[in-house]
Design a protein around this nucleic acid. Structure first.
Lengths: 201, 201
DNA sequence: ACCTGGAGATGACAGATGTCATGGGGGGAA
DNA sequence: TTCCCCCCATGACATCTGTCATCTCCAGGT
């Protein structure tokens, strides 16, 4: 039997996925968690062969949880399952030790298939996504630029950003300006949209 | 047997939900569609007792599909299932003839429960969400304000919005100004965020 | 020792954005 | 009919944003 750990915050989706995997007779869901920061503990307690991680989760993101799990329990294979096929997500997921990267609008059959394949030592990545990740490249933003751009996403003004980040208003404007140029955007809102889309935030 | 039509665009989630409902022995998933504009046709072809509709779908949104289905096949009970528990969604869903409104982070058991209850003629709504919908009220935005605000969400400038909507730049600025005030926002990006959050877009 | 690049800052400037006052036209409700 | 609200527009104004030149400081890398 293949022992699977399932991490996904929306309970309805999580239990539905468990039901789906339960239809496969050599797969057994041995643990379910709803937060990224519960993954490592659950893996220690239930010794799964494979961890299936959603990216969008409270506590730790699935990518951060993958890195933590890979460090703590290197023997556990990691499958990332996400709504958004963003190139930056894929890149960071693989860097964090993931063995497979699936999007939720792929056919359900690919899920059990991916689980079996990572156990044979294969890596499973959607070829379209892999191409997009190569084309878009890594994030061109520096840590500060990403931080300031991310903080501006909720509509904060320069003055509020400066206060929140402990910077001068001019510096905030400089970082946003370079972020806008690096993303080839028209303004900060556009830059946020583009950076989100590529998984750079 | 209760005959269920399932509409959800992410195939992995859709098939997982089908597996979940398949565990209930008096429930039978008789049709699955991935687009809102296929719901009515599928209902005519497969005569379900209940339609389970996701909101975020290509073609037609689940809310629009609910309205179309309610008009075409009034006998079919409608359950809306969505990621986002936005007050405006709930309001519009109920106005479109939905019988139940569930969020995906509710326990999975509520899904089959809701299906059984709408068939007994009950309405099923999360009480917290119902309260939020009453507090926030209906959208204060006029049709034009919503249109302009929505179009501004991608970072378009006033000039681009004016061109796209066939308005003068001044008019665009006026609509955005009133939208910003009605949403109690600091600027257009903030207004977009707030309006999205309440389901007004 | 030198160069590069990131972090942080200032000042100046043009253009974009948000607000307000004020108009005209139309349609629905009292 | 009158009133109100929505639609669309203009002009003026203050503020916010985005860009650029320029500066210091510091950490790595060659």
């Amino acid at each position: 039997m293949i022992r699977v750990l399932l991490a996904e915050d929306q309970s309805m989706v999580r239990e539905a996925l468990a039901a789906l995997l339960g239809l496969e007779d050599e797969i057994e869901v041995v643990a379910q968690v709803a937060r990224g920061d519960e993954v490592v503990d659950a893996a220690r307690a239930h010794r799964p062969d494979v961890a299936l991680l959603d990216i969008e989760m409270p506590g730790l993101s699935g990518i951060e949880a993958a890195a933590a799990l890979h460090a703590a329990e290197p023997g556990v294979r990691i499958v990332i399952l996400t709504t958004f096929g963003r190139p930056g997500y894929l890149r960071r997921a693989m860097e964090s030790g993931a063995d497979a990267f699936l999007v939720k609008d792929a056919p359900a059959a690919q899920l059990a298939d991916a689980i079996r394949r990572v156990l044979r030592g294969e890596r499973v990545i959607d070829p379209t996504l892999a191409a997009a990740a190569l084309v878009d490249g890594a994030s061109p933003l520096t840590a500060r630029e990403r931080e300031v751009l991310g903080a501006s996403a909720d509509g904060s003004t320069n003055a509020e950003l400066a206060r929140a980040l402990g910077l001068s208003q001019g510096t905030v404007r400089n970082y946003l300006s370079t972020a806008i140029q690096k993303t080839a955007a028209r303004n900060r809102a556009d830059a946020v949209r583009i950076a989100r889309d590529k998984g750079w935030l």
